[in-house]
């Protein structure tokens, strides 16, 4: 029996279109006045960019993987 594959590309595009068009109508479910905890300095995701970039550089030099964390480094310094 032949199984018809799902049109994943169309589903994805429809989803994007839905999200895009709903951009003007989606009501934020966490209101600005409810974001006190999120504004606390302990919730800042990359509070110390200099330190984060440095540690990322260390791990890239010692391991064989890279990327997916948002900061782009340069150079080697990895011997």
């Amino acid at each position: 029996m032949k199984v018809k594959s799902l049109p994943t590309g169309r589903i994805f595009l429809s989803f994007l279109l839905l999200v895009g068009l709903s951009g003007c109508s989606v009501e934020p479910w966490v209101k600005p006045y409810d974001r006190g905890h999120l504004a606390d300095p302990i919730m800042e995701l990359d509070a110390d960019v200099v330190s984060t970039s440095y540690m990322q550089h260390v791990f890239e030099a010692r391991e064989g993987t890279r990327g997916g964390e948002g900061v782009v480094g340069g150079g080697c310094g990895c011997n």
């Binding site: 966490v30 974001r35 905890h37 999120l38 919730m43 995701l45 990327g67 997916g68 964390e69």
Partner: peptide, 18 residues
Amino acid sequence: LTQILTKNLITTLNFETI
């Protein structure tokens, strides 16, 4: 993508091709 999910929870999703 950075997304606030609740008043106590923030999430991120990153995809990178090099």
